[in-house]
Design a protein around this nucleic acid. Structure first.
Length: 290
DNA sequence: AATTATAACAACCGCAGCGTG
DNA sequence: ACACGCTGCGGTTGTTATAAT
């Protein structure tokens, strides 16, 4: 079985990517497409392992990525999907075009988690924290079949979550997750909910914002926007009568034009304009706020 | 102005599933 | 059937920027 190891790690670089490395990787993929990641670093002349190249491309260099903070509606969608799927970041990301699993995971850990806790909601169970333990105890009693009782609450939680999560992963189109319904009801009843942070807009309250570009309704949504999701189809997510804000739907061409890494300088050649990461993020943020 | 704490996010690590020889 | 490599995923860490003292 003469396959070579994935990467021998000897002489391979780690840490932040340089402008030159980015350029090499982008040039290579734009020229050759995404092929065997193991071969990419050698062919592109990059001293990284294929895994690192793949991550850099998928999380940062891909031209269809949106930048900047998640919009309110994106956050709400993340919360809902998380209540159904748990930490299945890739599945959640597949429902947010232009967002990566890493980005969503980071946003969850740094923003959403705190907001939910601040609101008294357990970000893991999506239930009110005050009643979480008691609630689990009751549920545990109802679901004793096949359950090995843990000695502490922690292990019990895991036992309680798993069957439901597994079922939901098999069929996300199930009418409504109990967890999410409970969270949603709680959010609606919480006047103290930080509306300036994550407003929970009801479906009928969501309107497509006025924008200079064409507006999209749910009926005009291009199905291709969701083609990246093998396991979840957009229409399976239950959002009756919901009209999505534009940013969620569009893998905008605007995004490509705003993407400053690559620009066509004529005769088919691409110029690479590397900004440092924070400069770029700042400029994206600024653009998105305009 | 300097130092410390916190936030944000890019990148790494290890594991699991799947495909291939 | 088995061993191994490749890829993708999720958890975690490291680095940098910003805010607070």
């Amino acid at each position: 079985m003469g396959r070579q190891p994935c990467c021998d790690k000897v002489g391979l670089k780690k840490g932040p990517w340089t402008a030159e490395e980015d350029k090499k990787l982008v040039d290579f993929i734009l020229t050759n497409g995404q092929c065997c990641w193991r071969a990419v670093p050698k062919l592109a002349g990059i001293l990284r392992c294929g895994k690192s190249c793949r991550l850099r491309w998928t999380n940062y260099l891909r031209p269809d990525l949106k930048r900047g903070l998640l919009s309110e509606s994106e956050e709400k969608l993340v919360i809902e999907l998380h209540s159904r799927l748990g930490n299945k970041w890739s599945k959640i990301a597949s429902q947010l075009p232009g967002r990566t699993d890493n980005e969503i995971k980071n946003h969850w850990n740094t923003h959403i988690k705190k907001k939910l806790r601040k609101m008294g909601i357990d970000p893991i169970t999506h239930k009110p924290i005050s009643s979480t333990d008691e609630h689990h105890l009751q549920e545990g009693q109802q679901q004793q079949v096949g359950v090995v009782a843990g000695e502490d609450g922690r292990s019990e939680n895991i036992i309680l979550q798993c069957p439901q999560r597994q079922e939901e992963e098999k069929s996300v189109s199930v009418s409504s997750s109990f967890d999410f319904v409970e969270t949603d009801i709680f959010l609606q009843k919480s006047p103290g909910f930080c509306t300036d942070e994550v407003p929970m807009i009801q479906p009928h309250e969501i309107t497509v914002p006025c924008a200079s570009t064409a507006s999209y309704s749910s009926t005009s949504l291009p199905s291709s926007c969701f083609s990246s999701s093998p396991s979840l189809k957009a229409e399976e997510i239950q959002f009756p009568c919901m009209e999505w804000p534009e940013p969620i739907y569009l893998c905008e061409m605007d995004d490509f034009s705003q993407w400053d890494l690559i620009s066509n300088v004529g005769d088919g050649k691409l110029a690479f304009d590397h900004l440092n990461q924070h400069q770029r993020t700042a400029s994206w943020n600024q653009e998105s706020s305009n």
